[in-house]
Nucleic acid binder design. Structure first.
Lengths: 340, 340
DNA sequence: AGAGACTTCCAAAGCGCTTTGGCTATCTTA
DNA sequence: TAAGATAGCCAAAGCGCTTTGGAAGTCTCT
C-alpha cells in the first residue's frame, strides 16, 4: 500500500494525502480525518527510503564506533546505550553504528554526513581539542557531545557530569578525614573527564596546602588488571598513599585485590573512593568492604542525550547549550580516618 | 556530483555509467575504465538513499535491541559488537540498532522488514522455540542466530559455541578430581545456552553415577550480586557442594566474595570453574586465585556473525548452516582435588 | 457586483539511482 | 551474401515520497 494507491482510493491527489498525513495546514479538517482514517485502516506506512530520498531526513541518529583489533569498546557504552535506546524507542528513532578505523574516524564522519545517513550524531569520550568535534561542527550536522572538550574557539552542545566537582568533593572528604597522601588512579589522561577529575582533586588538596605528586597519579585504561597494577605500584612505595580515588568500579576491583595481596585492609590502611557509573551487574555496595563512590547514572545520560538529539533534529533545541550534571558523593565503609 | 552530471561529463548515458560502475558485463572495458577514472577523479559516490529506493538494499545489518526500564543490556553485547564492528568496517556495512519494547519485539521486526531498513539481522540470546526466530524465518529476511534455539520444525543458520561440551568437560574434570557434590550457577534458565550447560554437566555427572540436585542449580541474571547470593545459599547448606561451575566471570566475582565471607578458601574448600567470554577488562588469570575457565571469545563470534551475514546478503551463503565452535577448558589454580 | 483574500485542492517536477526494453553496429555462420 | 548472434550503448520508466506553482472555488468587503 503506497501513497499512490491510497490517494486513488480516496479520489484525492498524492499531494493532499501527503499533506494531510504530515499535518500541513492547507487541507481541511474533514479531509484530513478521512485520510487519516483510511491510512490507519489500510495500514499505510510511508516508505522511509522514498521519504528519505525526497527530504534528506533519515529518522536515525548516528554514532561512529572506533574499531580495530587493539580497540576495546568501553563497557560503559552498553549502559549508555540502554538509556539512549530507551528514549529512542518511544520516538521511533533508530541508532546506526558506523564502525570506523580507530585511526581515521574522519572518513567515516564525512561519509555519513555526505550520504545523509543520519540526522544527528553524538560523540563520546572527547579529548581536549578533539578533532571529531571540530569536524562535525564544520560539517554542520546536528550533534551533541557526551562529555566535554576544551580549547575551542567555538561553543558546542554537550552533556557532561561534574567530574571536577565530584573528585573535588571526594578528595575534600578524604583530607578532612586526615589523609595527607592521596593518589589517583585515573582513566586515559588524554580524555577530558580524566583531566577534570585530576583538576578537582588537585584543587581540593591545594585548599589544604597539599599536593598530588606525579608519582601519585596513574592514568591507564580502565581494566581490573590496570587497577591492580597501579595500586600495587602506589602501595609499595616508601611513603604509600593512605587514600586512593579511582576512576571506575572495574579498576577498583583491582585495587581491592592489590590491597589484599599486600596484606593490607580497607579502610584501615587505605581509604578508597571510586567513580560509579551505575552498572546493574557490579554494585559498589557489594564490594568486600562497601565502596564509597561518586555516582552518576550513565544510563540516564544516554536517555538525555537521545532526548536532546531528538530536540535538535526537530529544531526545538538550538545553540550551544552545555549541561552539567551534579554528581552524588555516596559514603560507604571504604573510607575512614587516616591511619596514624 | 551525481550520476546525471557524471554521465553528462562523459557524454554517456546514465545507464552506461551506472552499469560500468556496478560491474555489469554489457559495457566495454575501455568505457568502464574511462568511467571509473572519472568517478574517482571527481569523487563521485552514489547516493545511498537513491540506490536504496531503487534497489531496496540498504547496506546495513540490523539488531533489535530490547529496551525498557527494567531491561539491562548484557555487557557481553559490547564485546560481541567489537567483533561485529571490526568486520563490518572492512565491508562498509553499518549496523542499525532498533530499540524495541522488550515485551513486543515483533512490531519492530515487522517494521524493519517492511521498511527494508536493513538487509539482514542477527538474533542473540535465543530461547527454545524463540518467537523471534519463527518470525524472521517467515518474514524472509536473511538472518543469523548467535546461539541456538530448539524445538522448531525448520532449520536455521546459527553460530553457537559448544556450551554443552564445555560444561561437560568442566564437570568431568571436577569429577575426576574426586568431587561428588557439584553445583551450577547458571544464567537465565530460559535461554538455550543455560539449558545446554546444565545438560552438559548432568551428562558428565551421570557418567559417574552422580546427579545434579535441583537445589544445586541456580539460574539467575548474570550480576555480581546474584553470583554472591547463589553461592552463599549453596555453601550454607548442610552438605555444601565442593565444586561450582559458574556461567560468567561477573558472577564468579560474587562467588569468590561469598567464599571469602564464609571464611572458606578456593580451591581448598571449593573448586570453581566459570565460563569466560574473554573481556579485556576482567581476566580470569587475575582473580585472587586464578580462575579455571571454559573460554570462548565472544568477540570473534561477533566478527564471524558479521562475516556470515555479509555472505548471506550477497548470496554467497545459503541454507541453514549451523556452526558450533569448540570451547577451551583452561585449568588454573581454582580447581583442586575434593576436600576429604 | 467586482476585487481581493483565503481556503482547499491538484498536476507535475523533482530526489538520484537501477533496470527494462530496445536500437545500432559489428561479427559469425552457412 | 543474407540471416542471425552478439557487443555496446541509450531513452525512459520506474522506486515512493515531498514540494512547487498554480487553479478553482468560497468569502469578505466596499
Amino acid at each position: 500500500m503506497n501513497l499512490k494507491q491510497l490517494s486513488h482510493m480516496l479520489s484525492l491527489s498524492q499531494t493532499t494525502v501527503s499533506r494531510a498525513l504530515n499535518g500541513y495546514p492547507e487541507v481541511s479538517e474533514e479531509t484530513r480525518r478521512r485520510v487519516m482514517d483510511a491510512a490507519k485502516r489500510h495500514g499505510y506506512r510511508p516508505n522511509p527510503s522514498a521519504r528519505r530520498l525526497a527530504t534528506g531526513k533519515s529518522g536515525m541518529i548516528g554514532y561512529v564506533l572506533p574499531t580495530g583489533n587493539a580497540v576495546d569498546i568501553d563497557p560503559h557504552f552498553v549502559e549508555f546505550l540502554s538509556g539512549l535506546g530507551d528514549y529512542a524507542r518511544s520516538h521511533e528513532l533508530d541508532l546506526v553504528l558506523s564502525p570506523a578505523d580507530a585511526d581515521d574516524e574522519e572518513t567515516t564522519y564525512r561519509r555519513i554526513v555526505a550520504n545523509r545517513q543520519v540526522d544527528a550524531v553524538y560523540i563520546s569520550s572527547p579529548r581536549p581539542a578533539d578533532k571529531r568535534l571540530a569536524l562535525v561542527n564544520t560539517l554542520g550536522i546536528p550533534f551533541i557531545v557526551h562529555g566535554r572538550s576544551e580549547g575551542f574557539d567555538f561553543d558546542y552542545p554537550y552533556l557532561d557530569i561534574d567530574n571536577e566537582g565530584a573528585f573535588h568533593e571526594a578528595a575534600r572528604l578524604l583530607v578532612q578525614l586526615g589523609h595527607k597522601r592521596l593518589a589517583l588512579i585515573n582513566g586515559n589522561e588524554r580524555e577530558t573527564f580524566a583531566i577534570h577529575r585530576e583538576r578537582g582533586m588537585r584543587r581540593a588538596l591545594a585548599a589544604s596546602g597539599l599536593t598530588l605528586g606525579e608519582r601519585h597519579i596513574r592514568s591507564v585504561a580502565m581494566t581490573e588488571e590496570n587497577g591492580y597494577r597501579a595500586a600495587r605500584r602506589l602501595l609499595e612505595e616508601n611513603e604509600p598513599p593512605t587514600a586512593i580515588a579511582c576512576s571506575s568500579l572495574i579498576m577498583a576491583l583491582g585495587v581491592v585485590r592489590a590491597v589484599r595481596d599486600l596484606g593490607l585492609t580497607i579502610p584501615g590502611d587505605l581509604s578508597l573512593v571510586a567513580h560509579d557509573d551505575v552498572f546493574p551487574w557490579l554494585r559498589p555496595e557489594n564490594f568486600p568492604v562497601p565502596l564509597s563512590t561518586t555516582r552518576s547514572s550513565i544510563r540516564l545520560a544516554g536517555a538525555r542525550v537521545a532526548e536532546r538529539l531528538a530536540a535538535r533534529i526537530s529544531g526545538l533545541e538550538e545553540g550551544a547549550r552545555g549541561e552539567v550534571w551534579p554528581v552524588d558523593l555516596v559514603v560507604r565503609g571504604s573510607v575512614a580516618g587516616a591511619p596514624t
